[in-house]
Amino acid sequence: MTTVATRSTRPGEGRRRRATRRVAVTTGAAVLLVLVVLASLALGSKPLAPGQVWHALVAPDGGEASTIVRELRVPRTLLGLTVGPALALAGVLLQALTRNPLAEPRILGVSAGASLGVVVAIAVFGIGSLAGYVWFGVVGALLAGLLVFGIANRAREGASPVTLALVGVALDASLGAMVIALLTVDARTFEEYRFWVVGGLTGRDVGVTAQVAPFVLAGVLLAGFAARGLDALALGDDVARGLGHHVGLVRLAGGAAAVLLIGAAVAGAGPIAFIGLAVPHLARALVGTDHRWTLVLAALLGPALLLTADVVGRLVAPPGEVPAGIVTALLGAPLLVVLIRRARVVTA
């Protein structure tokens, strides 16, 4: 990464070189995502020939192959394409907002809020379908996010990275305790919860994706809006203000985006670990700290990693499956270790 100081005396030259590299990396990530999507449609515990898959997609005949592809593989691929970017973008946003390279959807308590929302849906309202969880997850995440932001804002220095993280961690603990309390009271809740809490793309129909997608879209737009402000915010609040940013507005937009993305992702696929932590690091290592690039790359790598995990989960233990949530943790942990060992973890 570190180029020799004497190599470039004209700043424009280095900038152009960097831009070329960024375009190349981003294009590569897009190609990778397309390949992973194809793999997700083509591979599974039931082997199907590419011709069968193609036929099932363009001209379904109601046979077994058609059912597998259209009822199982297409929905989970679509869900992965929705939830993957959400988790990765939320990670980028949270790491930038808290200026903490280890921040992830849990640190703001938003993930726990979404979980509590879902558990309340199961235990209090007796909702058993995943499509019904979505609203509760989003609302739970939203309330937790607002609560964290509200409490942190009352601190003397406002919602600074430190107060946000402290309040988030505290809230994560209390919300987690409430989830456990609800679960221990009600055995049936525990059964439903057990399926959801592992995290994965299985057993969710297209309706779940359709419910989650608008929230993700809103989050993506807000994240794009906040991108340049996040670049400035990384230099400190004062520098960001000096550069003409409304620091509170940038934080609010970024925070709202993170809340929407996490709420939607957690409700849709359960709390899936490591995408939100590992992908932002990977993205920064590849394209640097400019958030307009980091966000785009994370949005491509997030679903690529999540769908890879899902495909691997289908293949490792046929005829059974390992949920994507477990595979991401198994894949993500070594990835993070490699990133840290490779030299430097580039912070937001």
Partner: peptide, 19 residues
């Protein structure tokens, strides 16, 4: 001011153009 890791000099100076 905070110095984020990995930001190059050209990149940082470039951020002065944000306004």
């Amino acid at each position: 001011p905070l110095v984020p890791e990995g930001v190059t000099v050209a990149d940082l100076v470039g951020r002065g153009r944000q306004p």
